[in-house]
Design a protein around this nucleic acid. Sequence first.
DNA 1: TCCTTTATCGGACGATCGTACGGTATCATT
DNA 2: AATGATACCGTACGATCGTCCGATAAAGGA
Lengths: 201, 201
Amino acid sequence: MPRRSAAAVAETRAAVTEAAVDRASVEGLEGLTIGRLAGELQMRKSSLFGLFGSKQELQLATLEAAIEQFRAEVWGPVAGRPPGKARLLALSDSWLAYHEREALPGGCFLTTATIEFDAQPGPLRDAVADCMDGWLGVLEREVALAVDAGELPSDAEPADVAFQLNALAAAASYGFQLSRNPEVFARARRSMRRALGARAT
Amino acid sequence: MPRRSAAAVAETRAAVTEAAVDRASVEGLEGLTIGRLAGELQMRKSSLFGLFGSKQELQLATLEAAIEQFRAEVWGPVAGRPPGKARLLALSDSWLAYHEREALPGGCFLTTATIEFDAQPGPLRDAVADCMDGWLGVLEREVALAVDAGELPSDAEPADVAFQLNALAAAASYGFQLSRNPEVFARARRSMRRALGARAT
DNA sequence: TCCTTTATCGGACGATCGTACGGTATCATT
DNA sequence: AATGATACCGTACGATCGTCCGATAAAGGA
């Protein structure tokens, strides 16, 4: 083998996608450049290219890595709690904290990827749509559980609430990135709590 | 002069930015290419370049044109109404209708530009931030008027409601672009009406 | 009618992009 | 110790990018 220990390819790929997630959160998945990314990792362009076979494969792998990080850092801390409204509130806080501490330097990855590919058919768009569908489904099911438990009003449409929570968290992320004013997180927190709280009488 | 009538430069620039707004809503302002844009308009690369002097100037002009179109098509139809909650409801509908009829093929331009440049310092980021600030200010003042008129609860924080409306409209746009499911507009409409309706007791 | 102005064109430049291929050095196995 | 597999490197390619410059041709004023 080369200048690395055994089973290197998987670890090298993981190291690459980890760096790629950070870069792509700033410049987008299309703005990713194999050459610049290689330079950042002290590799050669051809080495990095060989690991994925094409830029598109690198983009797909980067998206997967970003989703995995999101799941670990946002959902992970609240996964152990019992389902229901309390976990939804904790999830909202965990979600906003993830953006406020700037776990990714460029803000919400899935939102960036969505905006980037939503109008351009192809494998990337399909993969992003799957991710978004999955996440909205998670939120919707959690809301439905809270409704069933009587913790949310029965007129709360789970898909609507999921849509609202996602819209507000995303807006908090790009609103903060744009204004650098941390008050947007307080605004988003109040808004998410309101989406989970009082409803029309 | 060349092969056009008098005072051509301003009209040519307008024709270019009009096409550029459409393209950029799909591929982003960074994805814009002088060559492709010129081909689309049956011009030469060097002609189009000469009209703006740099790609950055083209991007700034395109952003300005997009904002102007948004103002005309979204705010325009409701500008004549008396301020207050009724105009906010009409604005919400006008806003969603703008996205639902796909006035721009790639969805909300300002959101796309925000996500694209929010983490990359420079003139584009500054211009986008100004646009977003201005629009949120318009929304906030309109909400404040409705609160003062007693049409919205006094505990409604105008900046919070503005943030919510913008988050929901943007999410409707990219949610539809991604899923092609028009039901997201109904979801967004219910959500925006709720943001403008019942509040915590 | 001539001449200045100016909008557009044709062509070229250096840089950078994704991609491809053959070489090289190391590890694992025998 | 010899051998085969493999992870990485060096280099090069065609394409496309933004940018620049000189030529061209039409319009307006004299």
